[in-house]
Nucleic acid binder design. Structure first.
Length: 503
DNA sequence: TGGCCTTTGAAGCCC
DNA sequence: GGGCTTCAAAGGCCA
């Protein structure tokens, strides 16, 4: 049994380890009150995991018989050390009780969660449709690394605040409110860390491995198994639409035994040997559940961008909500372990064909992290250190009532010469603001431009308390920007100067 | 066609 | 034990 790792911050990238949000006073104490994962200390996150893991261990101690899965699943509850009493789970598949999403997929339940019967009635957050996700980097001159222009550690949602929500509702036909999106589950409901009483029946005996019954069906249906062909990813794609993450007619145990009988078949069988996927971790479960929402709300399809959003939403999740996913993940691991006791992640790690990870750190990797390192961004507030003083202000972002229905942005800058909020910056901001308030940008800006060669632009929007004046304009969106002249050394390092838009 | 991108977490390996 | 690496999902993008 693999031991439990309680390490956090997998990347080990110190540059992003301090995922701090620049909280502006204007946003008030709401941020202080909000319990988000950003506020979770490493120890707290560890406790979330450790709690579930410790319970897992305690359950195993209490259960000497580990044979069939459905016999291992307690039908009585044991209290979770977080004070929860009953299962809070409404799973993505709509199931009422604790069936991990990927496990649910295998029994044909809908893959995604709806808060209620009418998905359209489910209010997404006010930031839904914020155009950073819609920015066309080609159109606005962003380099590809800036396609998803979030500086790590900058989470759009806390910064937007209720005022932005008001702005969004003011200008968009959305009937959504910001409150319920991030609460797919009633956060006040307690968590039952034990598998719910009906859980074994979701994995009916015919679906579960047993010493008495063949595991064929189980293995066939378990989401962790995919054909080991090179198109395993395609299998995943198929699974996404067919809930068929677990291919049929695959039985690892049978395959293994057959292989042991005939070495000549080993090679061919190895090729056919099903690939048992890793159990999904908490964040993966969260992504699987929330992806469709983000796609629907932001009209995004590119997973890289969606994952950035989801990553920030994950950080914005409350401790309790995250705990649910940690618990789900723990169940996934537990079930996975029970179904494939001999499986090790090392097996998958040695698949060979996988991507050649960029060992030389000059290529690939987290571009934003690299860029932040490259330009020495301030770790605490995410500003380029030389840029922090360059704070300009969008004085007005207003609707054009000239029939075009567009908007205009007027900026001012109190920054040093050459470091103002340039036209390019405003052009870049325009669709962002447009997305915040809805509508289209028809014109923009008045402020001075600055050279973009050998420079980078670092922009951050801040929402003032009174974001909308009710007349279709927004005042007080502050913009900090600069066009920093790079040193020769920086120029050498930065072939494609990045652009950041922090929302 | 297959790897990359992008996120977080889990787990294995190496020193 | 710390650091590093890979893999989970996902779909557009690109060489």
């Amino acid at each position: 049994m693999p031991h439990t790792h309680t390490r956090h911050g997998s990347s080990g990238d110190d540059l992003c380890s301090t995922d701090e949000v620049k909280i502006f006073k204007d946003e008030g104490d709401r941020e202080d009150d909000k319990i988000s994962s950003e506020n979770l200390l490493v120890e707290e996150k560890s406790s979330l995991i450790d709690l579930t893991e410790s319970e897992e261990k305690s359950q195993k101690v209490a259960r000497p018989d580990h044979s069939p899965v459905f016999n291992k699943l307690d039908t009585h509850t044991t209290s979770f050390n977080m004070g929860y009493l009953v299962s809070p789970y409404s799973y993505a598949n709509g199931a009422a009780n604790g069936l991990p999403v990927t496990m649910a997929n295998k029994i044909g339940l809908p893959p995604f969660f709806c808060h209620n019967a009418d998905p359209l009635a489910t209010p997404p957050p006010a930031h839904c449709g914020i155009p950073p996700y819609q920015l066309d980097p080609k159109a606005i001159g962003l380099t590809r690394p800036a396609l998803y222009p979030f500086a790590a550690g900058q989470y759009a949602y806390p910064m937007l605040g209720s005022e932005m929500s008001q702005v969004a509702s003011w200008h968009t036909p959305s009937v959504y409110s910001a409150s319920s999106f991030r609460t797919p589950y009633p956060s006040s409901l307690p968590i039952n860390t034990t598998l719910p009483s009906d859980f074994p029946f979701r994995f009916s005996p015919s679906l579960l491995p047993s010493v008495h019954a063949t595991s064929h069906h189980v293995l066939n249906s378990h989401s962790a198994i995919v054909a080991s062909s090179s198109k395993q990813d395609c299998g995943s794609h198929q699974d996404s639409t067919t809930n068929n993450r677990y291919p049929r007619n695959l039985d690892t145990k049978n395959t293994s035994s057959n292989q042991s009988n005939d070495s000549s078949k080993d090679i061919s069988n190895d090729k056919k040997k099903p690939h048992i996927k890793k159990p999904l971790n908490a964040f993966m479960l969260y992504m699987k559940e929330m992806r469709a929402k983000v796609v629907a709300e932001c009209t995004l399809k590119e997973s890289a961008a969606i994952n950035q959003i989801l990553g920030r939403r994950w950080h914005a999740l409350g401790r309790e909500e995250q705990a649910k996913y940690y618990e789900l993940a723990r169940r996934e691991r537990q079930l996975h372990m029970q179904m494939y006791p001999d499986w090790s992640s090392r097996t998958n790690a040695s698949r060979g064909k996988k991507r050649k990870r960029k060992q030389d750190t000059n290529e690939g990797g987290n571009n934003m992290k690299k860029c932040r390192a490259r330009f020495g961004l301030d770790q605490q507030n995410q500003w380029c250190k030389p840029c922090s003083p360059n704070l300009g202000t969008i004085s007005t972002v207003s609707n054009n009532n000239n029939g075009g229905g567009g908007m205009s942005i007027t900026t001012s800058s109190n920054s040093s010469p050459g470091a103002g909020v340039g036209v390019g910056v405003v052009n870049m901001l325009a669709p962002i603001v447009s997305g915040i308030v809805g509508g289209a940008i028809s014109s923009s800006s008045s402020s001075s431009s600055s050279s973009t060669s050998s420079s980078h632009t670092h922009v951050q929007l801040m929402m003032a308390p009174n974001g909308s004046n009710g007349n279709g304009s927004i005042n007080g969106i502050q913009v900090a920007a600069c066009s920093q002249q790079l040193s020769p050394q920086q120029q050498a390092q930065a072939q494609a100067p990045p652009t950041y838009v922090n929302l």
